[in-house]
Simulated assay, not measured.
Amino acid sequence: MHTDAGLKKMLPANIEIRDYLAGLIKQSRLKQNERLPSERELVEQFKSTRITVRDALSKLESEGLIYRSNRRGWFVSPPRLEYDPSSRVNFYLLAEQQQRTPATELISQKRIKGPQAARTALAVAADEKLIELVRLRSLDGRPVLYEFIYLPESRFPELMKKDLEGSLTTLMQRDYNVEITHEDNRICVSAVYDQVADALSHINGAPCLEIRRIRYEGERKAVEFDIEHWVHSAIELRIPSH
């Protein structure tokens, strides 16, 4: 029979470091959004290598226990945002209902032909331009969502002159008399690369939760097509059945 001490000695170094940090988190000795010891400190504490320490941290990240912030280090993850894609509750209201602080940064806005998936979903004429909005959304200062939004220019004239860092749902209703009646959501596991990965403090090829959404006014008129890249450890989908 192995003793606990014997089992500990048998553990690979990366698992030992992972278990140590996970224990601190579960015992609340490291609290939500608190910074972890630096990689250098962990290397010295465990007399290990930077590669081994990074592997342990990556395991904790994949479990959703910690997250990385570029140039700042690793932090303990707060509770996941509970999200029902079918509810049509906007991001700001959803976050505030769960005592979180939301923020949105508009990365870019432009008139383009747009990807074929967006043009097909919105059923636009061959010569019509789409408005593309690229936004980064954060919770409590942590980037959690990078989104591409496509809208038909003919339905939303002068849109790019408006404040696009707030709720688009509210803006549509207030300025364009658009009432979103229903949505079609498709959800899958994907990966992030390049500017999306960098904005979300992820490495190239890191997994994410991808949501493709078509939003409608009335019975059949699609007015918005979105591609959302969520940090998988920041969100929990809850979809009630009726």
Score class of each variant (00 low, 15 high):
M1A: 14
H2S: 01
N14E: 13
D19W: 06
A22M: 10
A22E: 13
L24V: 01
Q32K: 13
E34I: 03
R35T: 03
L36N: 09
E41H: 05
L42K: 02
L42F: 04
L42I: 07
E44N: 13
E44C: 04
I51Y: 13
T52Y: 00
V53M: 07
R54V: 01
E61W: 01
S62Q: 13
G64V: 07
R68F: 05
S69I: 11
N70F: 02
G73S: 03
S77V: 04
R80P: 07
E82K: 15
Y83K: 00
P85E: 01
P85W: 02
S87F: 12
F91P: 03
F91D: 04
E96Y: 13
Q97P: 00
Q97N: 12
Q98E: 10
Q99M: 13
Q99S: 15
R100D: 02
P102A: 10
L106D: 03
G114S: 10
P115L: 13
A118L: 08
R119Q: 05
D127E: 13
L130I: 10
L130V: 07
L136I: 06
D140A: 11
G141T: 09
F148P: 00
I149D: 02
E153S: 11
P157V: 08
K162P: 08
G166C: 04
L171T: 07
D175K: 03
N177T: 02
N177V: 00
V178T: 12
T181S: 14
H182T: 10
H182S: 10
E183R: 14
D184H: 14
D184V: 15
N185M: 04
N185D: 11
N185E: 05
R186K: 08
V189D: 08
V192R: 07
Q195R: 10
D198W: 04
A199T: 09
A199C: 07
L200V: 11
L200N: 09
H202K: 11
H202P: 00
H202L: 15
N204R: 09
C208S: 11
I214G: 00
Y216L: 06
E217M: 14
R220W: 06
K221R: 12
K221L: 12
A222N: 03
D226K: 14
E228R: 11
W230T: 01
V231M: 09
H232W: 06
R238C: 08
P240T: 02
P240G: 04
